[in-house]
Simulated scan of single mutants.
Amino acid sequence: MDGADGPPSDVLETVFHIRETEHDGDRIRYYGEPLVPRRSLADELREPFRRSGYRLDVETGREPHETTVVATPADGRIDGVPWLNLVLFAATVVSTLLVGAVAWYYIPPSDLASNPLLALRAWPFTAAVLGVLTTHELGHYALGRYHGVDVSLPYLIPFILPFGTLGAVIRMRGRMPDRRTLFDIGVAGPLAGLAATVVVTAIGLSLEPMTVPASVFDTSGQVIVFNDPPLLDLIATALGQPTEYADPTKTVHPVVIGGWVGMFFTVLNLLPVGQLDGGHMVRAMLGRRQETVASLVPLVLFAIAAYLYYVRNLGFNESVGLWAVWGLFATAIAYNGPANPADETPLGWKRQALGLFTFGLGALCFLLVPIQLLG
Rank of each mutant, 00 (worst) to 15 (best):
residue 38 R to A: 08
residue 154 P to S: 12
residue 146 Y to M: 15
residue 160 I to K: 13
residue 62 R to S: 11
residue 107 I to G: 08
residue 129 V to P: 02
residue 117 L to F: 13
residue 48 P to Y: 09
residue 158 P to S: 10
residue 61 G to M: 05
residue 77 R to L: 15
residue 123 W to T: 13
residue 165 T to Q: 04
residue 97 L to C: 04
residue 168 A to H: 01
residue 41 L to M: 10
residue 84 L to R: 15
residue 108 P to N: 12
residue 143 L to Q: 11
residue 102 V to Q: 14
residue 176 M to A: 13
residue 43 D to G: 13
residue 153 L to W: 10
residue 178 D to I: 00
residue 181 T to G: 01
residue 107 I to Y: 06
residue 70 V to N: 03
residue 41 L to Q: 01
residue 142 A to N: 07
residue 140 H to K: 00
residue 43 D to M: 14
residue 54 Y to F: 15
residue 66 E to N: 04
residue 117 L to Y: 11
residue 93 V to F: 09
residue 112 L to V: 06
residue 181 T to F: 01
residue 128 A to Y: 03
residue 70 V to R: 03
residue 163 F to M: 07
residue 184 D to F: 03
residue 161 L to E: 10
residue 80 G to M: 03
residue 81 V to E: 07
residue 115 N to P: 05
residue 125 F to H: 03
residue 137 E to L: 03
residue 88 L to H: 09
residue 87 V to H: 12
residue 58 V to Y: 02
residue 162 P to W: 03
residue 151 V to G: 01
residue 161 L to G: 06
residue 74 A to K: 08
residue 179 R to Y: 04
residue 62 R to I: 06
residue 62 R to A: 12
residue 75 D to H: 14
residue 78 I to A: 15
residue 132 V to Y: 05
residue 55 R to E: 13
residue 74 A to V: 06
residue 162 P to T: 09
residue 176 M to F: 12
residue 58 V to N: 02
residue 123 W to P: 02
residue 54 Y to Q: 05
residue 57 D to W: 00
residue 79 D to W: 12
residue 175 R to L: 12
residue 116 P to H: 09
residue 159 F to G: 10
residue 77 R to Q: 15
residue 146 Y to D: 09
residue 128 A to H: 01
residue 59 E to F: 01
residue 72 T to W: 02
residue 132 V to H: 00
residue 143 L to E: 02
residue 174 G to Y: 02
residue 180 R to M: 06
